[in-house]
Simulated assay, not measured.
Amino acid sequence: MPATTFLETPQGRKLAYHRTEGQGPWVVFLGGLKSDMEGTKATHLESWARARGQAFLRFDYSGHGESSGIFEDGCIGDWHEDTMAAVAALTEGPIIAVGSSMGGWQSLLLARTVPERLLGLVLVAAAPDFTEDGYWASFTPAQKARLEADGYVEVPSDYMEPYRISRRMIEDGRSRLVLRDPLPLPFPVRCLQGTADTAVSTETALRLLDHASCDDMRLTLVKDADHRFSDGPCLGLIEAAIEDILTAAG
């Protein structure tokens, strides 16, 4: 395994990354909240891309994995800046963004910011606007009071230790929402969603499908697949979605 390399962003953060040279378009994996680039999907897709001779990038947002920073200090906007910096410095030409969970939201922010760079999107259990529609909407009055008084609140996770969610993350998230205003996606989009996902509901996937403006957008529901979406058949579906976009692009 090649050694991890680091990119210093315009904001002064150091992002850990692995970059695989190959033919374009670049496939860029955008991970989920508190996930890192050593996860099953990221490393599997890297091996898949290397076998094809496909250019591939995986990286850690600040406060995640090997990158600099503390998770609790970060927010959606910081990680959007990280994504933009990594794409600008480490890829060339068209890209296919593969966004998992929070990475799905990051993929949509990327598409809104530089649509000319996107050949297509693969969204796996995408969680757009989750800080508002998931966290804030479910907080009790006591949790909202603690968020205001202490600056953070802890929320449980089905997959790891509780998340410490900051007031800054909630407030910044409100300026990054993608399901309130028009969301043009002028390229193929493939959405994958497990029906046994306890972190992101099928209703979220259907809301995104209904809201976005896209001439070639498809949603695949996978019975009994959970939020990880990382077993053999699910990984095969992610590969197939990328290949479908490559075929559509000609």
Rank of each mutant, 00 (worst) to 15 (best):
R190P: 11
L177E: 00
R174P: 09
G173I: 02
P184V: 03
P162Y: 00
C191K: 03
R180M: 03
P184Q: 10
E171S: 10
E161C: 08
V178D: 07
F187L: 08
R164M: 12
R180C: 01
S175C: 00
C191S: 07
S166F: 13
I170E: 04
L185N: 02
P182S: 07
R167P: 14
G173L: 04
L183D: 02
P184G: 13
P186T: 01
R167A: 13
L179A: 09
V178A: 03
P186V: 01
P188R: 10
L185M: 01
V189L: 14
M169D: 02
L192H: 09
R176N: 15
V189S: 08
R180S: 07
R167H: 14
P182K: 02
S175L: 13
I165P: 13
E171I: 00
F187P: 10
I170S: 11
V189N: 05
I165D: 05
L185C: 05
D181V: 07
P184K: 09
E171W: 01
R164T: 12
R167Y: 08
P184M: 06
S175D: 07
L183F: 02
R164K: 14
G173T: 13
C191D: 00
D172T: 15
P188K: 05
L183C: 13
P188M: 06
L179P: 13
R174L: 09
E161N: 14
L185F: 01
R176F: 06
I170M: 13
D181S: 15
R167D: 11
R164F: 05
P188V: 04
V189G: 02
S166R: 12
I170Y: 03
V178K: 11
S166C: 11
R180V: 00
L179D: 13
Y163P: 06
R174Q: 14
V189M: 10
R174D: 08
P162K: 07
R164I: 03
R168C: 03
I170G: 07
I170N: 05
D172K: 14
I165H: 01
P184C: 07
P188N: 06
D181G: 14
L192V: 11
I165S: 11
L183H: 01
S175K: 12
P186R: 11
R174S: 04
D172L: 06
V178G: 04
R167S: 15
E161V: 00
F187H: 10
F187Q: 04
L179C: 09
D181T: 14
Y163Q: 02
P182T: 04
R180L: 10
R180G: 11
L192W: 08
P182H: 04
R168M: 03
R190C: 11
P188E: 04
L179H: 09
P162E: 00
R174F: 04
R174V: 03
